[in-house]
């Protein structure tokens, strides 16, 4: 950072309103609060959701502007009108996590405040301009950016933080905002089929299009048996081929699981699939293509034809 005088004062270190805002619509908010607090400003929260969510944020010592959604109305319906209220406070910095509703509220507020918007953010520091560190290319590089206030940030998808301890902190006030909703209503919800055993399993063996025939699923099942694992799959296996029940499909719109070991067999590693296994402790993969994307994310990889490696693996496990 250059040695020029910090012009935070000319930027207006903000009164009770202004300063730093977090925009909250789900339980992932502690990560936004952590980044917002580290920026050095006074934090205010705009919360759209049930009262316990607003109360939890306030309990962390943050004053809350709270919108309670009407029945069957998604949080997103309040984005435009809440944005006008947030922009009226002239925020210097706006922070949200990456959930769909939270970033929709943030996008509206950023535009209303005339803010720049940077995604993939890991950290922000104060100075003559904001300095932001963010993940680019799916985390293959960390870029440093500078931007003037006002600036809006969406955190990197896997940034998470524990709820801050509320002890010794005076809770923030919760001010209920009377905010009109846009025309948006939940017309129907179909609950997902009961979760299969893969959600709580310690070990999951999952397979993709590298398995060529339905009859060969038995081979993967034998490996799962040798590992004491549940069997999962990539989306095409469940949706296009119907070889396994949809409840066993792991990925963006399928199951999100956190096993101790996730073994991907014949799965190329599309980003949509990897979103479902972000929580895995150890990720291992078998693939015949040494350049397969799965090897960039895996902890351990075995290059080879799964039809040869899987039987060898079953034998090795039984030794």
């Amino acid at each position: 950072m250059s040695a020029t005088t910090d012009d935070r004062t000319t930027r207006g270190t903000a009164g009770p309103m202004g300063g730093v805002w977090i925009v909250v619509a789900d339980e992932a908010w502690p990560a936004a609060l952590e980044v917002a607090r580290a920026s050095g400003g006074t934090v205010t929260a705009a919360v759209v959701g049930p009262q316990p969510l607003a109360d939890a944020v306030a309990a962390a010592g943050v004053p809350v502007v709270w919108v309670e959604p009407a029945r069957d109305t998604p949080a997103e319906a309040y984005a435009v009108n809440l944005a006008a209220q947030v922009a009226a406070a002239s925020p210097d910095l706006l922070v949200s996590t990456g959930g769909p509703a939270a970033r929709t509220l943030l996008g509206a507020a950023a535009a209303a405040a005339g803010a720049s918007l940077v995604p993939g953010v890991l950290a922000v520091t104060d100075g003559p301009r904001w300095t932001v560190r963010r993940a680019v290319l799916g985390g293959e590089a960390i870029e440093t950016l500078t931007a003037p206030a006002p600036l809006a940030l969406i955190l990197a998808a896997d940034e998470a933080a524990d709820r801050p301890a509320a002890t010794g902190v005076a809770p923030g006030t919760v001010a209920k905002a009377d905010t009109a909703a846009a025309e948006m209503v939940v017309a129907g919800t179909q609950p997902a089929p009961p979760a299969s055993g893969i959600v709580d399993a310690r070990t999951v063996v999952s397979f993709g299009r590298g398995v060529h025939a339905k009859a060969d699923v038995a081979l993967v099942e034998r490996l799962a048996q040798a590992l004491g694992a549940e069997v999962g799959c990539s989306m095409p296996v469940a949706d296009d081929l119907g070889w396994l029940d949809r409840s066993r499909y792991v990925g963006r719109s399928g199951q999100h699981i956190s096993p101790r070991l996730y073994l991907a067999v014949g799965i190329s590693g599309a980003p949509q699939h990897l979103e479902g296994v972000r929580g895995a402790k150890v990720l291992a993969a078998i693939n015949n293509d040494p350049k397969a994307r799965i090897f960039r994310r895996a902890d351990y990889g075995a290059v080879g034809d799964l039809y040869e490696v899987v039987p060898a693996l079953i034998a090795a496990l039984q030794q």
């Binding site: 997103e76 984005a79 435009v80 996008g107 509206a108 535009a111 290319l137 799916g138």
Partner: peptide, 19 residues
């Protein structure tokens, strides 16, 4: 996923709701 702020900020700039 790379640019999760674009769709939401398009709505913001148009002052339209978004899903």
């Amino acid at each position: 996923k790379q640019d999760p702020g674009v769709a939401v900020a398009v709505a913001g700039h148009l002052r339209w709701p978004a899903l």
